[in-house]
Simulated assay, not measured.
Amino acid sequence: MCQQAVSRRIATLEHDLGVRLFDRTGRGVGLTIDGQAFLPHARALLQAEARAAASVRPGTRALRVDVVGRRVSPAGLLRDFHRAHPEIRLDVVTLFDADQATTALRNGSIDAAFRAVPLPGSRLPEGIESVPVYDEALELCVGPAHAWADASAVTPAQLAGQRIWMPGNTPGTEWAAYYDAFADAFGVTIDAVGPNFGVEALLDAIADSDSLATFFGERTPLVWPAGHDLRRIPLREPTPVYPHSLLWCTGNPHPALAALRSYLAAVRPTRDDAATWVPTWARSNRSGATTERDR
């Protein structure tokens, strides 16, 4: 900015404030007493403006990642990444569904998202990349009076005809599509009826029932009162896995995105595809996944 423009701005500011900020003499320009009082506040405002701009400018702001929910396993993966790389600043967001996530990726408001993709009859938008990062095994959760309460494991075939209560399964979401495919493959009824009062209310109902059951991922952290005596039972032969993938936008300039991708690739556990189940629509995003049980 040229000196004349600076002088005009200072003159305008002095006029607005009703005080002189500078003494102008033949020997130069110096701060008045009012100018000395004003200067630290002006500096603080400029620094706040710079921090505000940096907080939203890609490449300088924190790495912003969508994890669907803070109880699900991607949130745990992101916590592990933060422990391994505490120098990388993170912002964790929870967008509702894959459409919101891909829109946010494309407009640059987030840098990455954990999702199960692609959905049936759909494909990822142009410019969105994805890679599998974690196949999370499902567990059956039942109360102490349930017939399977003492089982060490249950097969999906044993669930045929059973009612699995999942009030959080919202139609049109990727997780509802996953459980619909599971229900079709193994003859299970996924019941989403009833208001979703959250995990605690769901666990209360499961604990008091001899017939209700629900699914959780193996890395979902759950805490319940001791009197509930709930059981988390692995599913085997095959093991249904929920296919978490990391999505990002091609050309995203954030310098920490590559570090997140490298970390997830290094810690991704291997599973025997012959012993696992995923829906057909999820297999197209999995490297080497060749198994599904269709009925």
Rank of each mutant, 00 (worst) to 15 (best):
A54H: 01
D66N: 14
A192Y: 03
R271D: 04
T170Y: 14
F186C: 10
T32N: 03
R70T: 09
T189M: 10
Q3P: 01
R71P: 04
E200I: 13
L45K: 01
S287L: 11
L63R: 00
V29L: 09
R79T: 12
L140C: 04
E139F: 09
A256I: 01
Y242M: 08
E174S: 12
T25M: 00
R283T: 08
F22G: 03
R20L: 11
L119A: 14
E87C: 11
V131F: 05
A181E: 00
Y178M: 05
T270H: 13
Q47D: 11
R268L: 05
Y179D: 06
G198C: 14
Q162W: 02
V199T: 14
E126L: 11
R219Q: 09
T276E: 09
S284N: 06
G217M: 02
R57L: 15
R293E: 12
P156F: 10
P74Y: 04
T94Q: 12
G143D: 10
G121Y: 05
A183Y: 02
R8M: 10
E292N: 13
S245V: 07
A149G: 14
V199F: 12
E200N: 15
L95M: 10
G172I: 09
T290S: 10
D210A: 15
W277C: 06
F38G: 02
A213V: 06
A137V: 02
R71N: 14
G251W: 02
D204R: 07
G217Y: 02
V241H: 01
L119P: 00
G187F: 13
S122M: 13
V72Q: 08
T60I: 00
R163T: 15
L13H: 02
R20C: 08
S122L: 15
A48L: 06
P234L: 11
A153N: 05
P74N: 13
E126W: 04
R219N: 11
F81P: 02
R27L: 07
T220H: 01
P195T: 11
L257H: 03
R106E: 08
F182W: 01
G28Y: 03
V72W: 05
T12M: 08
P125T: 07
P40V: 08
G143V: 08
T155I: 09
Q3V: 07
A37L: 14
G198D: 10
R70N: 06
H82S: 13
G28M: 01
A11C: 06
L124K: 01
R163W: 13
L63P: 00
R115D: 04
R106A: 15
T280Q: 08
T291N: 15
G198T: 05
